[in-house]
Design a protein around this nucleic acid. Sequence first.
DNA 1: CTTTTTTTACTGTTATAGCGGTAAAATTAA
DNA 2: TTAATTTTACCGCTATAACAGTAAAAAAAG
Lengths: 69, 69
Amino acid sequence: MNDFELGPMVKDHRKKAGLTQLELANLAGVGKTTVFDIEKNKETVRWNNLLAVLRVLNIKVEFKSPLTK
Amino acid sequence: MNDFELGPMVKDHRKKAGLTQLELANLAGVGKTTVFDIEKNKETVRWNNLLAVLRVLNIKVEFKSPLTK
DNA sequence: CTTTTTTTACTGTTATAGCGGTAAAATTAA
DNA sequence: TTAATTTTACCGCTATAACAGTAAAAAAAG
């Protein structure tokens, strides 16, 4: 289970926000290539760049573990 | 709100797992510097490296948004 | 259909994350 | 206390992510 893919989620949110990849990139302060890579599920992107994109799209990140719950 | 810091959480989980930074790094397949940086909240680490460390510590990542819920 | 926009893909260059090594603090154990 | 371990910090070197172009393929608009 949990073969969740972040890329498609980002793409979906961007679409629903009415943004092009370039617009999202500019809003997030990253290059268009980075947005493209994120949507393609490339995981070698930098954490801060991914965070910047998620922030624009109002996607929150949560970390959970048996210890946390 | 939500000035959540990932670094301390990683450190706490590592401690409770009885691992040194070096051991965690080796288990995750990253350099010791990367583990150190993550615990210091350095956000320029690569997403895949962060994921590898979280996986060892059994910390799951969830993405949430108004659209998702 | 045709035109426009967007997305995908590739390229060369630049900036820097990641790495292991080393060593000094800081912490923990004996 | 001293000794051993761990963490923090810094150092070059290397690998590669990020970037702005460019252009072709795909999608959307007219």
